[in-house]
C-alpha cells in the first residue's frame, strides 16, 4: 500500500543555544498513518515533535537547520505564516491543559481565534468535535460549566476535541496519556485508532505497549539521533539494531 507523504523531514538539526538536541534527523510521515516516536527521556523526541508545528520558535535561544516539508512546502520558509501553519497542525500536550473557560468555549476557542463568527456553525463544529473525541455524551448536559471540573481523562479528550475543531490535517500528541489512569488511557488509544481515518497522527510516548498498540510506524530516538525507524510490527519483533532491541525489551532506558 503506497500512501502519500504528508510531512518530509530532511536533515533536521536543532540547537538550544550551544547544545545540539537533534542531530541530522530525516523521516517521512504519511497520510492516515499513526507514527510513534519512542526513546528514553531527553532523547529529543518531544523537541522533534515541537519542530513540526514550530512550537520551538517560542524558545529565544533555539536554532533550526534542515528542512521540514508539509505537502512539499518548507514550513521554516520566511514566507510561511506560523499562525496559519499551526491551525493546520493540531497539538495535544502531555498534561491536559483546558483553558479556565466553559467546556463549550474551550472547543469554540480555535474557531473564534480563526475568525469564525457564525454562531450556528460554531455550535455544530463544537458538537461534531466533541463526538469525534468520544466525549460528547459525558459533557452534553454541562456545556456551559467550567472545563476544570472534568476528570483528567475527560480533560484530555476535551483537549483533543479542541484541537479537532479547527479541522487540522495533522495531529501531534506529546505523551497524551502520561498523566492518565489505564482506563482513560485506553479510551484515548481507541480514539487514536478512530482518528487515523481522517488525520495524520504523530505521537510521542514512553509506553512501549502503547506504541505497539496504536502506531503503524515507530521511530526510535536516542541522544538526539534517529536510530531506527520502520513498521511498528517489524521494530517490535525484528529490530535491525541491538540498541533498539535493548530499549524496547527494557534492558536500558
Amino acid at each position: 500500500m503506497d500512501k502519500s507523504v504528508k510531512i518530509e523531514v530532511k536533515h533536521l538539526n536543532f540547537y538550544y543555544g550551544e547544545f545540539q538536541a537533534l542531530q541530522d534527523n530525516s523521516l517521512d510521515f504519511h497520510t492516515n498513518e499513526v507514527s510513534a516516536l519512542i526513546g528514553p527521556s531527553g532523547c529529543g523526541k518531544s523537541t522533534f515533535l515541537r519542530c513540526l508545528n514550530r512550537m520551538n520558535d517560542l524558545i529565544p535561544i533555539s536554532r533550526v537547520e534542515g528542512n521540514i516539508l508539509l505537502d512539499g512546502l518548507d514550513i521554516y520558509d520566511p514566507s510561511v505564516d506560523v499562525v496559519m501553519l499551526r491551525s493546520r497542525i493540531g497539538m495535544v500536550f502531555q498534561k491536559p491543559n483546558p483553558f479556565p473557560k466553559t467546556i463549550f468555549e474551550n472547543v469554540a476557542y480555535g474557531l473564534r481565534v480563526n475568525g469564525i463568527k457564525d454562531k450556528g456553525l460554531i455550535e455544530n463544529r463544537v458538537e461534531e468535535s466533541l463526538k469525534l473525541a468520544a466525549i460528547w455524551d459525558e459533557v452534553k448536559d454541562r456545556m456551559h460549566k467550567s472545563a476544570l471540573g472534568l476528570s483528567g481523562g475527560q480533560q484530555q479528550r476535551l483537549c483533543i476535541a479542541r484541537a479537532l475543531a479547527v479541522e487540522p490535517e495533522i495531529l501531534l500528541m506529546d505523551e497524551p496519556c502520561s498523566a492518565l489512569d489505564p482506563i482513560a488511557t485506553q479510551k484515548i488509544e481507541e480514539l487514536i485508532y478512530q482518528l487515523k481515518k481522517s488525520f495524520t497522527i504523530i505521537i510521542v510516548t514512553h509506553n512501549m505497549q502503547q506504541a505497539a498498540r496504536v502506531s503503524d510506524i515507530t521511530a526510535f530516538f536516542y541522544l538526539g539521533e534517529l536510530i531506527e525507524t520502520g513498521e511498528t510490527n517489524t521494530i517490535f519483533t525484528r529490530p535491525k539494531l541491538k540498541q533498539t532491541e535493548d530499549y524496547i525489551t527494557g534492558r536500558f532506558g
Binding site: 512550537m55 517560542l58 500536550f93 491543559n97 484541537a163
Partner: peptide, 10 residues
Amino acid sequence: YREASLGLGA
C-alpha cells in the same frame, strides 16, 4: 495555556 492557544492557530 499559552502553548495550547498558539497551537490552535491563535
